[in-house]
Computed example of a mutant assay.
Amino acid sequence: MKNVKVLGPGCKRCDAAVQMVRDAAAQAGVEVTIEKVTDYAEIAGYGIASTPGLVVDGKVVHAGGLPKAADIARWIAA
C-alpha cells in the first residue's frame, strides 16, 4: 500500500490532485492511503513553496500545479 500526501491549503487544485491520485490508483489496481496536509509549517518542512505538492511514501515527487496523470501512475506504481 502506498502512502500519498497531498500538500496544500485545500484549494480546488489540491482537491483535483486528490481525485487524480484516486483515479490513477484505481486504474493501476494499487491501494493507496491519501492524507491531505494543510498545515503551512508541515508543508514548508517538505521544502515545497508552491502547491499542490505530492509526497509518495515520504518522498516529494511533485510541487506546484497539477501533475500529469501518467506521472502519478508511475509514482504510485514504483
Results as ranks from 00 to 15, higher is better:
1 M>H: 07
1 M>Y: 01
1 M>K: 04
2 K>N: 14
3 N>C: 12
3 N>A: 14
4 V>H: 07
4 V>P: 13
6 V>Y: 00
6 V>D: 07
7 L>E: 14
7 L>Q: 04
8 G>M: 03
8 G>Q: 09
8 G>N: 13
9 P>S: 14
9 P>I: 14
9 P>G: 15
10 G>T: 07
11 C>R: 06
13 R>P: 10
14 C>K: 03
14 C>Q: 11
14 C>N: 13
15 D>N: 12
16 A>D: 15
19 Q>R: 14
19 Q>S: 15
20 M>E: 08
20 M>T: 06
20 M>Y: 01
20 M>V: 07
22 R>N: 13
22 R>L: 13
22 R>K: 14
23 D>R: 07
23 D>N: 13
24 A>C: 05
25 A>L: 03
26 A>L: 09
26 A>C: 10
26 A>W: 00
27 Q>S: 15
28 A>M: 15
28 A>K: 14
29 G>F: 00
29 G>E: 11
29 G>R: 05
30 V>C: 13
30 V>D: 08
31 E>V: 10
31 E>S: 14
31 E>H: 07
32 V>P: 10
32 V>S: 10
32 V>K: 00
33 T>P: 04
33 T>I: 09
33 T>L: 06
34 I>N: 13
34 I>D: 01
36 K>P: 07
36 K>T: 11
38 T>V: 12
39 D>G: 10
41 A>M: 13
41 A>T: 11
42 E>H: 03
42 E>L: 09
44 A>R: 13
44 A>Y: 06
44 A>E: 15
47 G>F: 04
47 G>V: 10
47 G>Q: 05
48 I>M: 06
48 I>L: 05
48 I>P: 05
48 I>E: 12
49 A>M: 15
50 S>L: 14
52 P>C: 07
53 G>S: 05
53 G>H: 01
54 L>H: 07
54 L>I: 02
54 L>P: 03
55 V>D: 08
57 D>P: 05
57 D>F: 02
59 K>F: 02
60 V>N: 06
60 V>D: 02
60 V>R: 00
61 V>N: 01
61 V>A: 04
61 V>C: 05
62 H>D: 07
62 H>K: 00
62 H>G: 05
63 A>I: 00
63 A>Y: 09
64 G>T: 02
64 G>M: 01
64 G>F: 06
65 G>C: 03
65 G>A: 02
65 G>I: 00
66 L>G: 11
66 L>A: 06
67 P>K: 00
67 P>G: 05
67 P>Q: 00
67 P>L: 02
69 A>H: 11
69 A>P: 09
71 D>C: 04
72 I>Q: 01
72 I>P: 05
72 I>Y: 01
73 A>K: 07
73 A>N: 00
73 A>D: 06
74 R>K: 12
74 R>S: 15
75 W>M: 04
75 W>D: 05
77 A>I: 07
77 A>N: 11
77 A>L: 07
78 A>I: 04
